[in-house]
């Protein structure tokens, strides 16, 4: 059986908020390394991979691998009943047809108990190859979100170019064009506010802004985001948590 306790419900609430507009139904795979999820969006353009590691749980017990087939809209409805600071306990039998969620406040005088019906989801798992990326950029997640939102008002696509000069986001649309260039600017006192760029080789790729804006819904998970790029392979956007991550992969737009 599964029994997993999070000190703060906000962890799972933020993860679900981050991915619910990209995927609807997905398996939460529970095993001795924690709770993992991998799912593609309906159009098979983007993929999300999530891992909540056992170290992030105040209590974690999972005797055998259990797949929890969950509709994320339904899960979000149940999670609305949890306050951010509540302790959350997830419980499921070995072959479950429901997931039990218990929310307890810090004063220990309120216990909320919910059951979420589970579904059978036949989900394809993709093998994600180890990739040496040509460029890796670490920057404040709020700034990346602002750039994506601003450019999405002008165009459907953004060209991302990483060179030794910096990383440039540019787009052209019906009303005009726009570009934002970030130069390497490490912040010694507050690393989360700095921008670092590791460049192995120049990279130039084009991506759909609709997806990037969607990924930015994960900004609440981390102050920083890591963007990894290589020519002609999917972009990797990673939001790292204290004990886990949410990663988004996006296939590029190719040719003209």
């Amino acid at each position: 059986m599964l029994e997993a306790r999070l000190e703060q419900s906000s962890v799972l609430k933020k993860v679900v908020d981050a991915i619910k507009d990209l995927v609807q139904d997905c398996n939460f795979d529970c095993n001795d390394s924690g709770i993992q999820l991998q799912a593609m969006d309906n159009s098979h353009v983007a993929l999300v991979a999530m891992h909540l590691k056992t170290e992030g749980f105040a209590l974690y017990r999972c005797d055998r691998n259990i797949a929890l087939g969950i509709n994320l809209v339904s899960l979000q409805k149940v999670l609305r009943a949890a306050q951010n600071e509540d302790v959350m306990t997830l419980k499921a039998e070995d072959s479950p047809d429901a997931l039990s969620l218990v929310f307890e406040n810090s004063e220990n005088d309120r216990i909320s108990e919910y059951d979420l019906k589970l579904m059978d989801i036949d989900q394809e798992h993709l093998g994600i190859p180890e990739t040496e990326y040509g460029a890796t950029v670490k920057m404040p997640s709020a700034e990346f979100q602002r750039i994506c939102r601003d450019l999405s008002l002008l165009s459907e696509s953004v060209a991302i170019e990483a060179t030794k000069e910096g990383i440039k986001f540019s787009c052209t649309g019906d009303i005009g064009k726009g570009a934002v260039t970030l130069r390497q600017n490490p912040n010694v006192e507050k690393p989360e506010l700095g921008t670092t760029i590791e460049l192995q080789e120049p990279v130039a790729l084009t991506f759909s802004l609709k997806y990037l804006v969607n990924f930015c819904k994960a900004s609440g998970l981390s102050n920083t985001v890591t963007i990894s790029l290589s020519n002609e392979v999917p972009l990797l956007i990673e939001y790292e948590m204290e004990h886990g991550y949410v990663r988004f992969y996006l296939a590029p737009k190719i040719g003209d």
Partner: peptide, 14 residues
């Protein structure tokens, strides 16, 4: 603006 590639073209079934 290019043609949108499919993620399954890059990541194979496992």
């Amino acid at each position: 603006e290019g043609t949108q590639a499919n993620i399954t073209n890059f990541f194979t079934g496992a």
